[in-house]
Design a protein around this nucleic acid. Structure first.
Lengths: 216, 216
DNA sequence: CCTACCGATCGGTAGG
DNA sequence: CCTACCGATCGGTAGG
């Protein structure tokens, strides 16, 4: 026991390194989140890194310890938002096999995430053309991936007879337009929580897609 | 008769002046439309006037015969989009007094306009903060005006018992997010016309707002 | 993490 | 409507 302990480096060192790395990651995350909010509100090119730095209480060059380019920040911010969408889909898929319920849970969970991030998911509105190809292409791939997964969810509900047959692509364009818009108007000061908005939107969307003959 | 004619300036002149003004207006409109499309696709600050000029087959300084600043172009483009919304509301109001049908007609007409303008209404996604106060403030006023008018339409439908009572603000945020998103994905090459999209979206929206017990 | 600075882009103008 | 150009902003780097 004491021999094993002797072989290890002192605990302070062993912990200090991860701690420093963790600090770095935390700061990097804060930077991306803050920038994402600003990009979402004022647009990517209309937001200078000087402004982002000021909001974080540092100077612009300091940001370059954590990111290499402004493009990388936008890329990261969009990636985080797509990760949230994927997480919401996974949670919904794990919770139930019922296609309609799955769609409902996805909507609620995704809106919950969107509203908890104080507008940083509004970056999704930023055109992918603001990025050079090496960043734009992976983002486009993730857009297609999300689109495909959602269309499959809608198609499954149609196949199960839970909603009338139709074009899943149009249905997804419909409700994702509404959902992604939330990040641009939601504020925690409002009367509704993200969860409440999610439930109301889920009703709007599912009732809309099911049509007037929905009897349940 | 010949005396009156003698007093008038020759017809060629009398017609030429309006013709020149009309030309000017046509060119100005083409400039704003082209810029609006580019702003909507790539963002305001990510679109240089050099690019807009090139798309129109002229050089950048030539644009300044028609507009004073880049901000003015964005302001104009947004104004045109708001005018379209107001026109759609007026057409709907003139066509029927039934609140639900009015809302349906508004949706169909507005989407029809949106899809006929080849993406130039996507400028609505451009943050109003891209503009200096003297332009941003009137735009904000028009946003509030449109919002209020739509909320009143929804409220009227609720009051008439055509849809269950609820928060009209949330309902409007819901469907305007979906509708304004159309300008960002619609292309005339697709299988559906703007009219068809409008009818499907109107069904989605009205069924969504009416809820599962809608029996008609 | 800061001060100082470079280089490129781009809105807008002069002058014709 | 064009050529030529100015001035400001801003992403990114040097050097500490």
């Amino acid at each position: 026991m004491s021999r094993t302990a002797g072989v290890k480096k002192p605990a302070r060192w062993a912990d200090a390194v991860p701690a420093r790395e963790a600090q770095f990651e935390i700061k990097r995350r804060a930077l991306v989140r803050e920038a994402a909010r600003a990009f979402g509100r004022r647009g990517f090119h209309n937001t200078s890194l000087e402004e982002v730095a000021e909001a974080l209480g540092v100077t612009k060059p300091a940001l370059y310890r954590y990111v290499r380019t402004k493009h990388e920040i936008l890329y990261e911010a969009k990636t985080i938002a797509f990760d949230a969408g994927a997480k919401a889909r996974d949670m919904a898929a794990a919770a139930t096999a019922d296609p309609l319920e799955r769609l409902r849970l996805y909507i609620i969970h995704y809106i919950d995430l969107v509203t908890s991030e104080l507008g940083s998911y509004a970056v999704l509105a930023e055109p992918v053309t603001s990025l050079p190809p090496e960043y734009a292409n992976p983002i486009r791939a993730r857009m297609r991936e999300a689109d495909r997964a959602l269309r499959e969810m809608v198609q499954a509900a149609m196949d199960a007879g839970a909603m009338p047959p139709g074009d899943p692509k149009l249905a997804v364009a419909f409700f994702m337009g509404a959902i992604n818009h939330i990040a641009r108007w939601y504020t925690p000061d409002g009367p509704l929580t993200g969860r409440q908005i999610g439930e109301i939107f889920a009703d709007f969307i599912l009732n809309g897609l099911r049509g007037p003959r929905a009897g349940s």
